[in-house]
Amino acid sequence: MSSEPRTVLSVEGLHAGYGHVAVVRGIDMRVAEGELVTLIGANGAGKSTLLKALVGLVPPSAGTVRFLGEDITRMRPERAVRAGLALVPEGRMLFGPMSVEENLELGAQVTDRTQTVGSLERVFDLFPVLAERRSQTAATLSGGEQQMLAVARALMARPRLLLLDEPSLGLAPKVIKEIFGALRKLKDEGLTILLVEQDARLALKHSDRGYVMRTGSIALAGDAADLLEDDDVRLIYLGAWRGEGESS
């Protein structure tokens, strides 16, 4: 790394939660242009809430989120996606009764209409099965295809930063491989990606850097290769964090 890459996302002291319960408590993190950064941590550590807070689905109660230099803290989600932040949400949140094509077109509605055809070609190139299923409703797709559609729908917005929440959840190893292959390809094309993943080993293998989240804050940060060697992180792979998960 000779020249310092541009910062895409910087988060400082971010707090967010539901009602009076702060799930995210003072997060500092940074994602540079072209990076694939993974956020790992046990269930309930606040990873999903953090992603939701970044796009404005959960309003932050304190701290700042800067995106490409612009303060986007508390920006509404429909504005955030226009600014260039696209979320592949937990549970995919597809438009089930609508066709694959309609889902994709809805994803593209923040872009100029002339771009839609090109965007469609791009995502069909990435996930050819979606082209075969284009007139089928999203609800009739298999789990893996639904996840691909969720990623593709986010890409239709032509984001500068792609946020993914547990893209491997509940999927067969073969499908997971395909999705991570696609993420790899997107990264190689220069897309900046922030990934939340339960399968820490898999995610870190594909990432440049990682953050380990524990009960709402960052417990550990570093290069993905170093984190893979870290004893504490190795324990998370087994689903145990020295019993501290229970105390939260």
Partner: peptide, 8 residues
Amino acid sequence: DAARIVGI
């Protein structure tokens, strides 16, 4: 929520 994150 899905509608919001695609920009509606």
